[in-house]
Design a protein around this nucleic acid. Structure first.
Lengths: 192, 192
DNA sequence: TGATCCATGTAAGCCGTTACATGATTGG
DNA sequence: CCAATCATGTAACGGCTTACATGGATCA
């Protein structure tokens, strides 16, 4: 039906607009904080042009709201065609999920690196994981409050995230010390 | 010490060359199959130029081997500077690991999509995870055979991978059916 | 008073992928 | 005989990030 494939950023915009109208600014924020963080990260430089293209293709409509004291905002809404196109695009087979880990590269070089480097890397990673798990819970609380109709599916995805991130965290908590033990002891720790 | 930061592809090349000399062709293969798959994916179009730049900066040396009947190969070896630069670059703080999942986006739309789409997505994902877990084990077997000096750290990273990918797989095996149940029953399944 | 939020957009540039060019050898 | 493997490289194109441009309102 729809021949042209959507770019990842376009899919992100449509997915967010599926839940209600938003401005480009709001989409950017939601893509960083909300439940779509797992998909792609996008900046203004990719969102605004994508939104313009979507409007041109009539997958979304725009309404300009002039505000007093604030810059006027362009509120985008998804159209029926937009919904259909997103769903269609989602149904298309896609490449596998991507996990790219600089941390794992670092870990394989642990025996060659000073201990504090490994320790810091593990601590940062743990902190990052804890933050992500916390924000999944926060996003779920938001969805509950909004009485979101997709709630079931959302909860499933959240549980998936919590489960998997939890596994990462638990591994680090249980086995992190072993990696630290492999690293070089910091003899003279004064160097830059 | 080394001011200029290494590009991800350059780090990948140096990391692979750390274990011994390789050609660009071999690096490409190893980046897809070997234990560095978790870091970045690189194509010839990025590896060859990166190698040339590294040679220019004397982080690697080249030796050209003319072969009879085959195209001549350029064998790259890492230099002492190269090793130091990689280790230095690795010790530098870096952004968090990245997980980008089209599958999770799809899952949040399960109630709006035909059941077979969700079923196929889950099956593909399971197959992908099983394949990745299998290749971790294969890579470890290789490392054991090679008597790799980093073996401990390698085993740690492999265990990390197995643990986390295992968590993904187990979640899908336990809760996949619930997501499928949320999807639209395929009434008329004949359509393209 | 200075940072941060709101709000939209453009332009330059980087980094990387895809596709192309070339070509002998080996295996099914 | 056709496909894949080995092997190196370039050129074009694409997509996304960064930085810039603009500017009032609010908050500390």
């Amino acid at each position: 039906m729809s021949a042209d494939t959507l770019s990842p950023v376009a899919m992100l915009c449509l997915a967010i607009l599926f839940n209600g109208e938003r401005t480009g600014y709001e989409i950017k924020k939601e893509s960083l904080e909300g439940r779509h963080r797992w998909f792609v990260d996008a900046s203004y430089g990719s969102i605004y042009p994508a939104l313009a293209r979507l409007a041109h293709g009539e997958l979304v409509t725009v309404r300009e709201e002039v505000q007093s004291g604030r810059p006027s905002r362009k509120v985008y809404s998804i159209t029926a065609t937009g919904r259909a196109t997103l769903l269609d695009s989602l149904a298309q087979p896609a490449g596998p999920d991507v996990y790219r880990s600089r941390f794992l590269l670092l870990s394989t070089f642990a025996p060659r690196l000073p201990r504090h480097v490994i320790e810091e890397a593990i601590n940062e990673r743990k902190a990052g994981l804890r933050y992500e798990i916390a924000s999944i819970r926060a996003a779920m609380a938001d969805a509950d409050r909004d009485g979101d109709p997709h709630c079931e599916a959302l909860e499933w995805a959240a549980a998936y995230g919590e489960n998997c991130l939890g596994a990462h965290l638990e591994f680090l908590e249980t086995h992190g010390d072993r990696l630290i033990a492999m690293a070089q002891t910091d003899i003279a720790d004064a160097a830059e």
